[in-house]
């Protein structure tokens, strides 16, 4: 697993629940080190072990945690760079949904060894979409749910999201877009001011 992903989980846990919880997760998951380097790679089992330990330590279902992780990735001020990279995906939320299929390619453009889940979008008309997501960790679809919820807010769109469970190799999500411009959304300039 790419260190960037493990590091995101580490930051999510320590930013949201404090360093003590992170230390407890490190102990329980026996991942050895208490710090993931975002530019290095780690065995995938560590990611699973870490998520399971977090769920046990916090006594919260793993799916809920993963959904919060997805929201954290978009909303936390430290990750403004990531929010911006996602916003390059499209002018409006519909555009953004359609570029989700490019997500793994976009990831690889930024970091050639970064693997992101393959996503397939089915437009069922009338604002109804199905997303098929090939999870890299069990329950990754919930991360996508959290991420989409936060991105909808960012774009100012009103959506209903649901995780429909697994179908073969894919986790299936339903997206119901009620209003693409429900609010103004968050401002996005294509280029940052000099020095930022």
């Amino acid at each position: 697993m790419h260190g960037l992903i493990n590091r995101s989980i580490q930051n999510f846990l320590s930013d949201s629940y404090g360093p003590a919880v992170w230390s407890a997760v490190v102990r329980q998951s026996e991942i050895g080190s208490d710090n993931f380097e975002p530019m290095l790679s780690y065995p995938s089992e560590q990611t699973e072990a870490m998520l399971n330990a977090a769920s046990e330590t916090l006594r919260r279902p793993k799916n809920e945690l993963l959904e919060d992780l997805g929201t954290y990735l978009v909303c936390h001020p430290h990750l403004e760079a990531l929010r911006r990279l996602l916003r390059f995906g499209g002018v409006g939320f519909v555009d953004f949904l359609h570029t989700l299929e490019d997500l793994p390619d976009r990831g690889r453009l930024a970091l050639s060894d970064l693997e992101l889940p393959e996503i397939i979008l089915l437009d069922q008309g009338d604002g109804h979409y199905r997303l098929h997501c090939a999870p890299m960790v069990d329950g990754a679809g919930f991360i996508v749910v959290g991420l989409l919820r936060a991105m909808a807010d960012d774009y100012g769109a009103l959506v209903l999201l649901d995780h429909l469970g697994r179908e073969g190799a894919y986790e299936v999500l339903s997206v119901h877009l009620l209003d693409q411009s429900y609010t103004e959304g968050k401002r996005f300039d294509l280029a940052l001011p000099v020095g930022q």
Binding site: P38, M39, R84, L85, F88, R106, L109
Partner: peptide, 17 residues
């Protein structure tokens, strides 16, 4: 737009490195 995306992605990666 892809170029702008890449410029920002590159800066973010460089910061991490």
């Amino acid at each position: 737009i892809e170029m702008l995306y890449l410029v920002e992605a590159k800066s973010a990666v460089m910061r991490e490195l």
